[in-house]
């Protein structure tokens, strides 16, 4: 799974460039916590720590969780998120290979439900502020609980803004004219999403992930978005806007492709990923949260065994 980590590097670097040190503190702390919990669980379960760490799965979980969370997370929130991801979602079910739910998404959703305010407060991208928080400021926020609003400008994500302002009956054109939005989606965000997509394509090229999953997820979201945009163009953002978000791209290439908690057959994987895309769109549009990829993944995780049951491919000689 080291290749997965390599594929995440470009997007993560750009993300740090745009949002500052907070991305890296997230990443470093989450990695330390996840590895710590992994070692603890493996020790308690009396398995080989060396073998458990050699597959890098805990690092991948940490990384996916860290880049899903708003930058500059307080350390204790990261600790809770990593604990739920590694201990509850993974090792309570028997460790790698046995978890029915995606560990990173479990950690994310626990934090989202428990701390909705902090979880929707993102830093403003670099082009909208005079200066990003300094390293000292960042460490202050992360470790000493300094107040974020004094030191840096925090704001909602483009998806969140879209949702709130649509709720205030503004038209799409008005909303998207602000500096938060770029040509296709969120300014700056669209480039991060683009680099994550590039990393994902690298994994497809290496055949580490099947191409069907990202295609189906993007199609699931794209079809839903197209239908509503065509019906009411002023009230629903076009499919490009929904697809070129870090949530959708990370979900398509890095999260819905988790083989352990997903489906087995190609047909099953397509249904799984399309379901994630559709559910995420529904939650974005009408749910209580700005993004729904995490919920979409967990809901489809629940459905995976059922999908598997009905999508067993015909073996050689069974078709006739």
């Amino acid at each position: 799974m080291r290749q997965v980590l390599y594929a995440l590097i470009p997007g993560t670097l750009l993300m740090s460039w745009i949002f500052g040190w907070g991305v890296l503190t997230n990443l470093i702390l989450a990695t330390i916590f996840c590895l710590g919990f992994e070692i603890l669980a493996i020790k308690l379960r009396q398995r080989s720590v060396k073998i458990a760490l050699s597959d890098y799965s805990a690092v991948v979980t940490a990384w996916l969780l860290a880049i899903s969370l708003p930058p500059m997370m307080p350390w204790w929130m990261l600790l809770i998120g990593c604990c739920f991801a590694i201990i509850v979602a993974k090792h309570f079910y028997g460790g790698i290979g046995n978890n029915p739910f995606n560990p990173a998404m479990v950690g994310y959703v626990v934090l989202l439900i428990a701390y909705p305010l902090q979880m929707t407060q993102w830093l403003a991208p670099s082009h909208m502020v005079e200066a990003l928080p300094s390293l000292a400021n960042t460490l202050g926020v992360v470790f000493a609980g300094a107040d974020l609003t004094i030191d840096a400008v925090s704001m909602a994500t483009p998806l969140d803004t879209l949702k709130t302002e649509l709720g205030l009956s503004k038209t799409l054109g008005e909303i998207r004219s602000t500096a938060l939005f770029g040509t296709l989606a969120g300014a700056g965000w669209e480039w991060i999403a683009g680099l994550y997509a590039l990393g994902g394509l690298y994994l497809v090229y290496l055949k580490i992930i099947p191409w069907q999953t990202p295609v189906a997820l993007i199609a699931g979201m794209g079809v839903m978005a197209s239908v509503f945009t065509l019906a009411m163009p002023d009230h629903f953002a076009p499919p490009t806007f929904h697809i070129i978000t870090t949530g959708c791209i990370l979900g398509a290439f890095f999260i819905a492709t988790d083989p352990v908690s997903g489906c087995s057959s190609t047909k099953g994987r397509v249904i799984f990923a399309a379901g994630v895309g559709a559910i995420a769109y529904i939650i974005r549009g009408w749910g209580g949260y700005p993004d729904g990829i995490a919920f979409g993944v967990l809901l489809m995780n629940m459905a995976a065994p059922l999908i598997d049951h009905y999508t067993v491919p015909k073996a050689y000689g069974q078709s006739s």
């Binding site: 073998i51 290979g97 087995s264 073996a315 050689y316 000689g317």
Partner: peptide
């Protein structure tokens, strides 16, 4: 090591099994 359902085996199975 534990199976992570990566599906490499599905790709190569000549009997089209899972």
């Amino acid at each position: 090591q534990p199976c992570i359902r990566c599906g490499d085996c599905v790709r190569v199975c000549p009997a089209k099994l899972l």
